[in-house]
């Protein structure tokens, strides 16, 4: 397993290189000028040229790329053109809310989605099944930002229980952190529970498998059959879907971050694109790609754990 993970990590290098090249290329062939974003539209050409020289934007594209790529190897992501801080520092600061939001949402989604999916699958056509299936359709039909605004209006404005938005770091004020994160995590987590449908359908598949019949024939009760024979098999196809959703979250849940005013990666990236803040955009895309690859690797490891046929490389 260690060898497998090691080899997979090595394959990250060409993937990230490609991502770096493509982002760099796209950005530099996109019209727009960071100096206008920084100095404003009224700045004179001389002022802008001066700034360009200061930022190193007057050099050739290849040179700029090599400079940047060389910095990457030293984990130096450059200086933000707009924020005037090192990109690495900015990334870490903005990553914290995004990563924590992603993890909390995933926990909410798992806590709600797995039992809902399993029960719906086991008791197909029952009350819970119909309820869950109706709910997932309704939730999928409501856009995130709208659901977010609704819960803010109800819990924060109407009842005044929770803050309307903003981010509090857990190292500063843990209770404040919890209060700040409850609503966004719930909204984002609930919107993910549509994978309950996928769990349900894999549970249904597994329930009709012949080895489940064998399990009954050995004298197991239904809860025993579900726990010992159904869950693990049903988890296998769901893991991929959950992993992809989680990877997307790590790239920044832009809309939710905006609604709850969380200064996350998603928000940073959107704003940086508007500002043509090249180093931040490049680093942000690269980070998303890296996180996504790591999550995929994690999914594969979980896969191998769940399914011996994968483990033994058949």
């Amino acid at each position: 397993m260690a060898g497998f993970v090691g080899r997979r990590l090595l394959t990250l290098i060409p993937v990230l290189l490609m991502v770096a090249l493509i982002t760099f290329g796209i950005l530099h062939f996109t019209p727009g000028d960071p100096t206008i974003a920084i100095l404003g539209i009224d700045a004179t050409i001389e002022q802008r040229e001066e700034l360009r020289a200061a930022l190193g934007l007057d050099r050739g594209v290849v040179e700029q790329f090599l400079n940047w790529a060389g910095g990457l190897l030293r984990l130096d992501f450059g200086q933000s053109l707009y924020l005037r801080v090192p990109v690495g520092e900015a990334m870490l600061r903005y990553l914290e809310p995004t990563a924590l939001l992603a993890v909390y949402s995933l926990v909410v989604a798992l806590l709600v989605g797995i039992p809902a999916g399993v029960i719906s699958g086991v008791r197909r056509g029952g009350l819970i099944d119909r309820l869950v299936m109706g709910m997932t359709v309704a939730i999928n039909a409501v856009p995130n930002f709208f659901l977010g605004i609704l819960v803010i209006m109800f819990f924060s404005v109407q009842l005044g229980l929770l803050p309307t938005g903003g981010y509090v770091s857990p190292t500063e004020d843990f209770l404040g952190h919890v209060r700040a994160m409850i609503l966004p995590s719930a909204v984002l987590g609930i919107s993910l529970t549509s994978f309950a449908r996928i769990i349900r359908s894999s549970v249904l598949d597994v329930m009709s498998a012949e080895y489940v019949e064998t399990a009954y024939s050995k004298g197991l009760s239904r809860p025993q059959v579900v726990i010992k024979h159904v869950l693990r098999n049903a988890a296998i196809p769901s893991v991929t879907v959950i992993g992809i959703s989680f990877g997307n979250l790590l790239g920044g849940a832009v809309v939710t971050e905006y609604v709850f005013n969380l200064q996350g990666i998603g928000q940073l990236l959107v704003e940086s694109i508007a500002r043509r803040d090249y180093p931040v955009i490049q680093a942000g895309v690269l980070l998303s790609a890296l996180l996504f690859c790591l999550v995929t690797l994690l999914v594969d490891v979980i896969y191998a754990y769940l399914d011996p046929r994968v483990r033994y490389g058949r």
Binding site: G219, L220, D307, P308
Partner: peptide, 22 residues
């Protein structure tokens, strides 16, 4: 459940499908 797998054993047709793969 006392009968199933206890006093009555059952053998199925397709062993590949009737064993839990995991």
């Amino acid at each position: 459940r006392g009968l199933r797998g206890g006093r009555v054993g059952m053998i199925f047709q397709d062993p590949m499908a009737n064993f839990n793969p995991v």
